[in-house]
Computed example of a mutant assay.
Amino acid sequence: MSQHFAARLRDRQLLGGTFIKTPQSHHAEIAGLAGLDFVVFDSEHAPFSAAQLDHCLLGARAAGIASLVRLRQSSPSDVLQALDMGATGVLVPHVTSARQAREIVASARYRDGLRGFSNSPRAGAYGGHSMLQHIERSDSETAVLCQIEDREAVEAIDEIAGVAGIDCLFIGRADLSVSYRLFDVDHPEVERAIQRVASAGRSACVPVGMFVADTAAMARYAALGVTLFVIGSDQSLLRSGFSKLSQSVAELRSQIQ
């Protein structure tokens, strides 16, 4: 049996996925059929209702692809809802302190945590898993990713990285550049912040992930120890594909007119 997503993440296997910003299941199904390792349903920046998120998570499960949910906020209720719906894990935005990270981990775990128990939702096979089976499976297979995207988080990164139960430090370059008031993701100071987070991850033996707009920068950041990449989004991939299609049509039009 192949490793589950959280085990592959913790083993620092190179993993590639994309953001899903369209609240329909089809794009996640296509991503799974195409062989991506995971998708991230972006409920922070896209209009997912609870019902739409539930449907999308079902679509991801049907396609056999790991599914993360980027939450709107780090509240225990948001964490619980995503995990009960069957999400493989949560990507929590704007984690700025070790205390906040500990609270997030506690919300996602049963043993040594505070996650409210129910085996009746999808995550517990609608009651098909016993209490102990559900607890053991959930605690071992749930991935907790903390998004590092604030100057305050970078300054506290060693303490955050030291929190037991964090499965990934996920770097958000865009928000980092805004937090530093630089408004340039390629600014040297942003790059130094990225390197500092990557170094803290290596020292604490915590995997590091990040968002990249396309595949061009992956090798550079993989050399720093980044092993999980969220590459673009369903919307950016559609825009790129449609733009190339439009360009091809325009070129043909110019040739025959």
Rank of each mutant, 00 (worst) to 15 (best):
F5C: 03
R8C: 01
L9I: 02
D11H: 08
L15W: 07
G16L: 15
G16Y: 15
G17H: 08
P23S: 02
S25G: 12
H26L: 15
A34F: 04
F38C: 09
V39N: 06
F41Y: 14
E44N: 01
E44K: 03
H45R: 01
S49A: 04
A50S: 12
A50P: 06
C56R: 01
C56P: 07
L57W: 00
L57Q: 01
L58K: 09
R61N: 13
R61L: 14
A62I: 15
G64L: 07
R70Q: 05
Q73T: 07
S74D: 14
S74Q: 12
P76K: 08
S77M: 13
V79N: 04
V79C: 10
A82N: 03
L83A: 01
G86H: 00
G86L: 00
G89V: 02
V92I: 11
S97L: 06
R99D: 14
R102V: 10
V105E: 13
S107L: 04
A108I: 05
R109D: 08
Y110H: 13
G116V: 05
F117H: 01
S118M: 01
S120E: 04
R122W: 00
A123I: 00
A123P: 00
G124H: 00
L132G: 09
S138T: 02
S138F: 00
V144T: 10
L145I: 14
C146S: 15
E155R: 15
I157W: 08
I160F: 10
A161L: 07
V163W: 09
A164K: 15
A164Y: 13
D167K: 02
C168W: 04
L169H: 10
G172Q: 04
R173N: 05
D175N: 04
L176V: 08
V178N: 09
R181V: 11
R181L: 11
F183N: 15
D184K: 05
V185P: 10
H187K: 07
R192Y: 04
R192N: 14
R192S: 14
R192W: 02
A193G: 15
S199A: 15
S203G: 09
A204S: 10
C205G: 11
C205D: 13
C205R: 14
V206E: 03
V208F: 08
V208N: 06
R220K: 15
R220M: 12
Y221A: 05
A223T: 12
L224N: 05
L238T: 03
S240M: 07
S240A: 13
S243H: 06
